[in-house]
Amino acid sequence: MRTIAASYIIEKVADMCIRANRELPADVLAAFARRQAEETGPAAKEIFRQLLENAALAAETGLPLCQDCGLAVFFVELGEDVKIEGMGLRQAINEGMVKGYKDGYLRKSSCDPFTRKNTGDNSPAIIHFDVVPGDKLKISMMAKGGGSENMSRATMFAPAQGWKGIKEFVVTRVAEAGPNPCPPVIVGVGIGGNFELAAINSKKVLLRELGDTHPDPAVAKLEEELFTAINRLGVGPMGLGGATTCLAVKILVAPCHLASLPLAVNIQCHSARHKEVVL
């Protein structure tokens, strides 16, 4: 049994919350630069120029990339041979998040759904736990903004609706969202599982590298098909028109009930802020 001190987890989580909000992942920056070169319209090119300048300024000044520093979402893989010492893992992650959002001058966006009163410290963190073999603790953190989250949807299809129905739903969702979720977006698609698993998978899959290829060639082909279709919409960066409505489409498939075809679409804005740490 390996022991990890809760105080160490708090420090690491605080640091990853701050850095996630200031530093865009390298794959996202590379996609901006490539797409800036490929776009032909001046408006689309100008948006990418601003986004690259914004990223450079955030790194230089320590300001967050976006004022919406999001709800803090965590995907945690806890090794079966790891013991946390000092406090519970959920509490440690939440305390680290609160510390990071305070010390990093990040916006606290969590509120009561009825009174709309701000909880004041961005808590509670939304944490999805998984237990895995081994003696490591892997924590992935996403700063997920409200604008893109509001454009996300889940539905329960009849099995007969199949791939055609799935494709129509996903592409129509991105079209209807239009400029609202800050395109170019990254589209996470959860297919199968059940009602809640499809939704969780549609978010979890957003942690993949933008340029990676799905290990199952059949799913990789579906991702490519959706990517091509969405970019034919012409919405473009910030809805001003162009060839880049999405930077990537990522699909996570899970077995489902005989009666169901669960489907969830999680839309991620271009400010795709996430960090991973393995302890």
Partner: peptide, 13 residues
């Protein structure tokens, strides 16, 4: 009027 979404650090200047 539209301002560029997600360019919070840039607009802050």
């Amino acid at each position: 009027l539209g301002a560029t979404g997600g360019a919070g650090a840039l607009l802050s200047q």
